[in-house]
């Protein structure tokens, strides 16, 4: 096995072009498990943990750029205003895992249960990918193409994710068997976009990859428009409309039965998460918080 330890992105991309079989390793919290347990034996590893270009994080002309190499601990400390992302980061593993695990690694693994992924989907994020020939941005849905499958070219590296900053409340929540160290049975990210008067919701762990629920999104935005909620936070949609929203979100799930939960339970969980997330968002708007 060869191990490459480049110091710059250019150097890393040259190596990746020459050795597309070199598997990138960032925090190692997914990959090392596979190596330690002998599930995978790559011909070569490419350490990306020293690349300063991947550790950038912050606002860049109206958008947030989150470098692939930024740990969850850093997301929590440095992007607190991205509430759902900070909440999802807090829900990952344990302190030890959050200190090492990165959003780039979450994208690279592309597990349907990756906690950062519903947030990126609800943000309508682009994933920035680079090869020796340059960088390009792919909408998240074109990057996450299936369970553990991405559109990353063999000679490419993930540079990070980028999204437009939307004003409005939002949250991430997940259902699991306990509070810490769990793989989600179902997870949900809700984002309200005050400028576009739009509702965006994404689901994790209930389909082959992260799913959005466009029908439910349109329904909720219209219900809020009918009730006048967008202009007056105290004017709320009717309870049966919130219920209808929750059912439509659950209807977008494509869950399976597995060791963590049944498909029926997962659907039920999606409805509960959706109901709660919308109520929280409406309460937040009413309280005038988190604009």
């Amino acid at each position: 096995m060869d191990v490459f330890v480049p110091r710059t992105l250019d150097e890393a991309l040259e190596i990746k072009a020459a050795r597309p079989d070199a598997v990138p390793i960032a925090g190692g919290t997914d990959l090392m498990v596979e190596l330690n347990l002998n599930r995978r034996r790559p011909r070569a590893l490419l350490d990306v943990s020293r690349l300063a270009e991947l550790r950038r994080c912050g606002r860049e002309d109206g958008a947030v750029f989150l470098g692939a190499g930024v740990s969850y601990t850093r997301v929590i400390a440095e992007l607190p205003e991205c509430v759902p992302l900070a909440q999802a980061s807090r829900a990952v593993g344990s302190p030890q895992i959050r200190n090492r695990g990165t959003v780039g690694g979450n994208l690279g693994t592309a597990s349907p249960a990756g906690d950062a992924l519903p947030v990126l989907a609800a943000y309508d994020a682009e994933i920035v990918v680079a090869t020796r020939d340059g960088a390009r941005a792919l909408p998240w849905a074109q990057f996450l193409v299936g369970p553990k499958q991405t559109a990353l070219p063999p000679d490419g590296l993930i540079l990070g994710a980028r999204w437009r900053i939307a004003r409005g409340p939002g949250s991430f929540s997940k259902v699991g068997t306990r509070n810490a160290m769990v793989i989600a049975i179902a997870s949900l990210c809700l984002v309200l976009d005050e400028e576009q008067r739009a509702v965006r919701v994404a689901l994790g762990s209930v389909g082959p990859t992260v799913l959005r629920a466009p029908d439910a999104e349109a329904y909720a935005a219209e219900a809020m428009a009918r009730a006048g909620t967008w202009d007056d936070p105290a004017a709320l949609p009717a309870p049966r409309e919130i219920e209808e929203w929750a059912q439509r979100v659950a209807g977008a799930a494509r869950p399976i039965d597995d060791v963590r939960g049944t498909a029926a339970y997962r659907r039920h969980a999606c409805a509960a998460l959706a109901r709660r997330a919308l109520r929280w968002a409406l309460e937040d708007r009413r309280a005038g918080g988190r604009a």
């Binding site: 330890v5 919290t29 190596l35 330690n36 590893l45 943990s49 302190p95 030890q96 895992i97 090492r100």
Partner: peptide, 21 residues
């Protein structure tokens, strides 16, 4: 967590860090 150490001052699981890193 029984392999917990500090790497550059950060608490990590030593089993998940590649030695080369």
């Amino acid at each position: 967590g029984s392999c917990s150490v500090w790497l550059d001052g950060e608490l990590v699981c030593a089993c998940l860090v590649l030695a080369a890193q």
